[in-house]
Amino acid sequence: MSATLKSPLLPTCGTLRSIEEIAPDNFLYRFKFTDKTLSSCMPGQFVQLWLPGVGESAISICSGKTGDTLELLIRRVGRVTTSAAKMTEGQIVGLRGPFGRGFPVEHFRGKSVCMVAGGCGVAPLRGLWQYLLDHRCDYDRLTLVYGMRRPSDMLFAREFKEMAKRKDIDLLLSSENLPPEDKTVVPMQHGMVTAVLHSAPLAPDYQIAVCGPPVMYKFVVRDLRRRGVPDENMWLSLERHMKCGIGKCGHCFVSGKLSCQCGPVFRLDELKGLPEAIECE
């Protein structure tokens, strides 16, 4: 009996199909796989990408549906992600997942949803907007707020250009640096993400999905509260050091909660009294 037990840390095989550079140092990888469980990926969940001999890295799902191909946005920062740069088409990788609790797309049904992305936090939210747009008639008003450092950092520019033509989603983009000579693919305001959030159409019954660098959350939360949005309507995707994804390795504790199990998407009121949740050094 014991000999046939399968280790939950054993990855399944995936094959690299393509790499597309979508911004400096940011690449969209497409992996094909046959494992059925991976097909059930939902926006906000994550998978573990393993480069044998190098290591594993937790990466958020960034497409609305998965089928037999995973799209992962990889920013070349760490050891694993830098090694991913040397990969060639057809190369085999290990994949595990999906893990964690994603955005509550069922709970969002019939409601208006505002997505707030900062920097690379736009990748997990891409899964959400694609999902919501794929099921557009199930949702009320959709807004997407996206702040970046400079226009050249913009991820998924082509997709934004297409979305800008749609009437059924409002886009509000901002850049902290906006040289006047810079031509941007979609109109942008000058300033922090919180500045554009200010002008976003919002009502207290809106559902808000937030993902960005750790420092961003407290400012976004403060502004949303000022506009009357209750904590129960704010959904935050928190980045933690996920090693195992299955609630065993202890790396992802947010105060006393395992974020690979209870998160990475948390409803703000679930984080009350958890001092480590939205602050950091």
């Binding site: 920013r75 920062v77 760490g78 660098p213 750790p214 980045e239 933690r240 050091h241 790396h251 504790f253 947010v254 480590e276 950091c280 050094e281």
Partner: peptide, 11 residues
Amino acid sequence: FAKVAGDFNFR
């Protein structure tokens, strides 16, 4: 132990 990408350390 609690470091994430971008060198943020939660503890």
